[in-house]
Computed example of a mutant assay.
Amino acid sequence: MGSMAERDASDARRIYPSMTALRMLEAVSRLGSLHKASEAMFVTPSAVSHQLRNLEQMLGVKLISRAGRKVELTSAGNRYVQDIRKALEIVERANAPLGGSEPFGPLRINCASGLGSYWLAYHITEFLDLFPNIDLEITNETDRSDILNDQTDFSIIYGDGAWPGKHVQHLFTPRAFPVCSPAFLERHGRIRTPEDLVKLPLLHHRNQSDWVVWLSAASKKSFELSKGIMFSDVTQNINAAIAGAGIAIGDDILGRHALSEGKLVRLFDADIRGPHAYYIVTQKERMERRVCQLAIDWLSRWFQEYTLQTQS
Rank of each mutant, 00 (worst) to 15 (best):
Q57F: 02
M58C: 06
M58Q: 15
M58E: 15
M58K: 13
M58V: 06
M58L: 15
M58N: 08
L59E: 07
L59M: 15
L59A: 07
L59C: 05
G60S: 02
G60M: 00
G60L: 01
G60T: 06
G60W: 00
G60R: 13
V61G: 07
V61C: 09
V61S: 12
V61N: 10
K62I: 12
K62Y: 01
K62A: 13
L63P: 11
L63S: 07
L63D: 08
I64L: 14
I64T: 15
I64H: 11
I64M: 11
S65V: 15
S65N: 12
S65L: 11
R66F: 00
R66M: 02
R66I: 00
A67H: 09
G68A: 01
G68H: 07
G68M: 03
R69N: 15
R69I: 06
R69S: 15
R69P: 05
R69Q: 14
K70Q: 14
K70V: 06
K70C: 03
K70L: 06
V71H: 10
V71Q: 04
V71R: 10
V71E: 08
E72S: 06
E72Q: 10
E72T: 04
E72C: 01
E72A: 02
L73G: 09
L73W: 08
L73C: 09
T74Y: 00
T74S: 00
S75I: 12
S75K: 14
S75Q: 15
S75H: 13
S75A: 15
A76L: 06
A76C: 07
G77Q: 09
N78P: 01
N78H: 03
N78T: 05
N78V: 04
R79P: 03
R79Y: 10
R79W: 06
Y80E: 05
Y80R: 10
Y80Q: 11
V81I: 10
V81G: 04
V81T: 12
V81E: 04
Q82H: 10
Q82F: 14
Q82M: 13
D83K: 14
D83N: 13
D83S: 13
D83T: 12
D83C: 07
I84L: 15
I84K: 12
I84R: 10
R85Q: 10
R85E: 09
R85G: 12
K86R: 13
K86N: 11
K86A: 08
A87K: 12
A87T: 06
A87H: 12
L88T: 07
L88V: 08
L88P: 11
L88D: 08
L88F: 09
E89S: 09
E89A: 08
I90C: 05
I90T: 09
I90D: 08
V91Y: 03
V91H: 05
V91T: 03
E92N: 11
E92H: 13
E92W: 05
R93L: 04
R93F: 00
R93N: 01
R93E: 02
R93D: 01
A94D: 11
A94T: 12
A94C: 04
A94H: 11
N95H: 03
N95F: 03
